[in-house]
Design a protein around this nucleic acid. Structure first.
Lengths: 192, 192
DNA sequence: TATATTTCTTAATCTAGATTAAGTTTTTCT
DNA sequence: AGAAAAACTTAATCTAGATTAAGAAATATA
């Protein structure tokens, strides 16, 4: 059923009782999102955290020159939100957009806070996830520092071959921190 | 006394009982670190997380060309470790070094896990801290994408004027992602 | 199945920041 | 206080990747 993915995910990182699972499930809202639809848009208040059951999203902002910069991707079993807006109730600078038809489970900050007030294991679940996100962020920062554009692409391709097929190249270029033209140059080089 | 800083910090983000605080305090080890001493070195297993009571640290790795790249700084009231090594029991690629005489409280993974097994509020404390770290990491990634070297320096200076005095410029340059020579150029421009 | 829109490629030119190298200033240690 | 080490500056040259522009493929829509 519809909560299978999230329950499996929770059980992978914590050991909640039936009641703890139930209290969490009760506050989730299922939603279908079409390709290119937005979960949140720049300027809004991001009151939800979103668990991706199916599909792919990107978060991006538009810089001074009007160029879209992809900050993150999210696929199945990832949580996606703008934490700054979600936690601090500030206006978000990010857009989160579906890159394909998707299904999500969303949870509001206020409901989540209530559950986190009384459930040790749900706290643990989010703590562990955040630890893993921290590791990923640190690794990404290290890569950005250490690798040339070409090495970044090759490394990304090596670890996520199927994902490269799943998204437009210009989004990947933006995520890796360079222009689509330069990515095109790299790919020509690689495949010849 | 010696646990004042950490207790205040915990109470800022969670609401632990006396017993929860005590169970956590019991597993902390106080340590004095001299300037330039290492908390961990590349190749070691990083079994501790470190809370900085006093002083300043930098974490860095050495790239293929032998150049040191500063990944993070930590000052009073920050936790510092290599999460990848700490969580996954892998060899760390990072060095964590004191940039001035320091006092830390360290906690081993195994002891921390025991406390986290039974204390909701200590789980919450670390979850909330990690949420804040996530926000900082995301902001940093956005800055790295969006700002020129000069803008990066000016922004950093604006938000951390006192900190710029506290560390050698070449570490800051490395943290911001460019060379000390380029930072020198920027500063000449700024102050003339 | 044709047309419009989006995405990708190629190539010429340009620029932010790297590299190298030498000299200067500051800090540390005895 | 003096020597050695560490940190910072300046300037010339070089390069990875940006920018601009125009055309070609691929996808979506009618």
């Amino acid at each position: 059923m519809k909560f299978e993915a999230i329950i499996n995910h929770i059980n992978k990182f914590a050991n909640p009782s039936e009641e703890e699972i139930q209290s969490f499930i009760d506050i989730l809202e299922l939603e279908n999102i079409s390709s290119r639809e937005y979960l949140i848009k720049e300027g809004q208040y991001c009151n939800y955290n979103h668990f991706i059951v199916k599909g792919c999203f990107r978060s991006f902002f538009t810089n001074k020159k009007g160029v879209e910069k992809t900050v993150n991707f999210g696929i199945e079993d990832w949580w996606l939100t703008d934490f700054d807006s979600f936690m601090n109730k500030t206006q978000t600078q990010l857009n989160i957009q579906a890159t394909e038809d998707a299904v999500i489970l969303k949870v509001s900050k206020s409901n989540l806070d209530i559950v986190l007030q009384s459930s040790l294991e749900i706290n643990k679940y989010f703590r562990v996830i955040l630890e893993r996100v921290r590791i990923a962020d640190q690794r990404r920062i290290q890569f950005m520092f250490n690798l040339s554009g070409e090495e970044l692409y090759n490394t990304f391709y090596e670890y996520n071959p199927e994902f490269v097929q799943r998204i437009p190249q210009y989004m990947l270029a933006s995520y890796l921190g360079f222009t689509p033209e330069f990515l095109s140059k790299i790919r020509t080089k690689k495949h010849s």
